[in-house]
Design a binder for these strands. Structure first.
Length: 344
DNA sequence: GATGCGTGGAA
DNA sequence: TTTCCAAGCAT
């Protein structure tokens, strides 16, 4: 037995005994899982923890049991259901992808065809091809990068080491059970070969791990230093009339694009807002929301005011305040709404 | 290849 | 409290 096939068989044996039970996985020994559920879970799991995904996955699959149901749903319903999960381009692409697949009639089964779908990159295409369709594909996510960096003691920092990581990951990926192998690598990275304080004594791959032999596997992979996040100032406006609040839908594909929100003063990642209200009213301070995004922090002043009529000279809709939870506000604006409503 | 893009939990 | 980050993708 070669070292490479020994790695895969040791990992698969460990997986057979210790695999996490997750809602999108087939039962052990069962047929391959539903591609729709695999796709949906993989998109939700992009840069997102299992714990955060679980309730969203349950909600989506209950409401939209297959790709045709999802493809037929209005954009706004899907965007609202995604609210709070973050990285909203995923939801925008989810809609496009569902409709493309519905048009095709089913999910394509090869990595190359999957890669053409909106929102599917190298990782997700390989994951679906292997997990849902049983094809051999080299699945490389952050867990695999960490495990492989340690197994092979790759000293070059990310992201420059990605080419070598892929070569080494390919060298241990088996022809059979590639999907289980991928999920095993991710379970291993999640529970054993963790970023901090790896549990090497529980690791099924300890015998072949070069970094473990050096005594400090947690040092790998070497990552670049992160930039400091600027702090931006912004203002948002709670405009109330007859038990309803004025909501808008954000344009474009940028920050929070496609999501409902309170009107604001144009703050963005590169600069502060202009503090100008979208509508004439007597404004009252409701407080400040602090929220940290991927690349900047925001101090959002919340102003509240009453509209004298339902006429607002811009695009939007009046939303019943007692149903604000169903509006699908991203967390930033949900925080602002909570701030206002806590005062009543 | 670098940058923009959310969120909530862990340490 | 602050930092770091978790199953990436699009441009």
């Amino acid at each position: 037995m070669t070292i490479q096939s020994g790695t895969a068989s040791a990992l698969l044996a460990w997986y057979d005994a210790h695999a996490r039970e997750l809602p999108w996985r087939a039962q052990p020994g069962a047929a391959l899982p539903d591609p729709y559920r695999v796709w949906l879970s993989e998109v939700m799991l992009q840069q997102t923890t299992v714990a955060a995904v679980k309730p969203y996955f349950e909600k989506f699959t209950e409401r939209w049991p297959d790709v045709f149901a999802l493809a037929a749903a209005p954009d706004e319903d899907i965007m609202a259901a995604w609210a709070g999960l973050g990285y909203y381009s995923r939801a925008r692409n989810l809609v496009k992808c569902a409709r493309a697949v519905a048009e095709l009639g089913s999910f394509p089964e090869t990595e190359a065809e999957l890669l053409k779908l909106p929102g599917l990159g190298a990782y997700t295409a390989a994951a679906i091809a292997s997990i849902a369709f049983g094809q051999r594909a080299v699945v490389v996510d952050a867990n695999v990068e960490r495990v492989v960096s340690r197994l092979f003691a790759i000293e070059q920092p990310l992201p420059g080491s990605r080419k070598q990581i892929r070569i080494d990951a390919a060298s241990i990926t088996p022809e059979q059970r590639a999907g289980d192998f991928a999920q095993a690598m991710m379970d291993l990275g999640s529970g054993i070969c963790t970023t901090r304080d790896p549990k090497c004594l529980l690791c099924p791959l300890i015998a072949g791990c070069k970094a473990q032999k050096t005594g400090d596997p947690a040092r790998l992979p070497v990552k670049p230093v992160k930039k400091a996040k600027p702090v931006r100032q912004g203002t948002t406006f709670w405009i109330e009339h007859d038990g309803k609040v004025w909501l808008e839908t954000r344009e474009g594909t940028g920050m929070l694009g496609g999501m409902r929100s309170l009107p604001d003063d144009g703050w963005h990642s590169g600069g502060d807002g202009d503090r100008k209200a979208p509508h004439a009213a007597k404004w009252q301070d409701a407080g400040v929301v602090r929220h940290t995004f991927t690349h900047f922090s925001l101090e959002l002043s919340v102003k509240r005011g009453l509209a004298e009529s339902t006429e607002i000279n811009r695009s939007g809709e009046w939303w019943p305040i007692d149903q604000i939870e169903s509006a699908g506000l991203p967390t930033l604006f949900a925080k602002a709404a909570r701030l206002v409503l806590a005062q009543d």
